[in-house]
């Protein structure tokens, strides 16, 4: 069976410094894959290459066999790749619902239309998406005054607007309460299973990673050093060595709770 996403030999360097060096992996439809690694490992750079924001120096990214390298983000999105950002990016002058409506309008290729009130367009579809992420109660609120966790959820709704085949989530649960994290990831997983959507996400919270990912990849200094099931990765000595200093792998849960 062909992989949904096939990444080969991805390289990116900034003025001589290699941020990502030869990353290759594949992702099946319906699979939930986590990408972890310490700060500065190159996770965000990888993400930005995957959705076309940064052009890799070398390598190939194939979605269902189609080459994606060189396409701008908007075209990558049209091919069915949704994404959320580490630092949320939403339209702060609009309401929650309008944020989703813009994405829907874009998906239905109606953004060049000059007729009609956009606030009335795809309303039900937008509300469905908001219900899906639990934001339906807040549909009328100005996006500019949302709490951070809610913004993350809104981003998810927006990212789902184009019925993506592949969803990229950059730290989707940062800033959320532990209970919310579980809810959000469970939801994402449910959608992935139901729609056969591939999910690639980065995450600092190891509980989230090990509980929800089907597989985990570990990136260190721009290189993939491990890939496998959560249990395999957790036992990998290399991975343990890297994370030892950060103390994230085993006592993450306790730390998080202490902070909260």
């Amino acid at each position: 069976m062909n992989a949904l996403l096939e990444v080969k030999g991805l390289v990116k360097s900034y003025s001589g410094v290699h941020a990502v060096r030869g990353v290759s992996f594949s992702l099946q439809a319906g699979e939930i894959l986590a990408l972890i690694g310490p700060n500065g490992a190159g996770k965000s750079t990888c993400f930005n290459m995957l959705n076309g924001q940064i052009r890799p120096n070398a390598g190939s990214i194939r979605l269902n066999g189609e080459e994606m390298v060189g396409l701008p983000p908007r075209t990558v999105w049209r091919r069915g790749v949704g994404r959320t950002f580490q630092i949320t990016a939403t339209f702060s002058s609009m309401t929650v619902r309008e944020n989703v409506q813009v994405a829907l309008l874009s998906y239905h290729r109606r953004l060049w239309s000059v007729l009609g009130y956009a606030g009335a367009a795809h309303r039900e579809e937008a509300d469905d998406l908001l219900t899906l992420v639990g934001m339906d109660q807040q549909a009328e609120r100005p996006c500019g005054e949302l709490a951070y966790g809610d913004l993350k959820r809104l981003e998810l709704a927006v990212a789902l607007a184009n019925q993506p085949r592949l969803l990229l989530m950059d730290e989707p649960t940062a800033g959320m309460a532990p209970k919310e994290r579980v809810e959000l990831m469970r939801l994402t997983a449910a959608i992935a299973r139901k729609k056969d959507m591939g999910v690639l996400f980065t995450e600092h919270d190891m509980d989230v990673v090990f509980e929800h990912a089907d597989a985990v990849m570990v990136l260190n200094r721009g290189e993939l050093i491990a890939r496998g099931s959560p249990q395999e990765v957790r036992r990998d000595p290399h991975v343990q060595a890297i994370y030892l200093g950060e103390g994230l792998l085993y006592d993450a849960k306790h730390r998080e709770e202490a902070v909260q």
Binding site: N51, Q53, P72, P73, R74, T75, W77, R78, R83, F85, A89, T90, F91, S92, S93, M94, V102, A103, S106, Y107, L111, V158, A161, N162
Partner: peptide, 14 residues
């Protein structure tokens, strides 16, 4: 949308 967040706008096909 393009004014509020160029990043997000681009990421939803605008």
């Amino acid at each position: 949308a393009a004014r509020d967040s160029a990043l997000r706008a681009e990421a939803i096909g605008i």
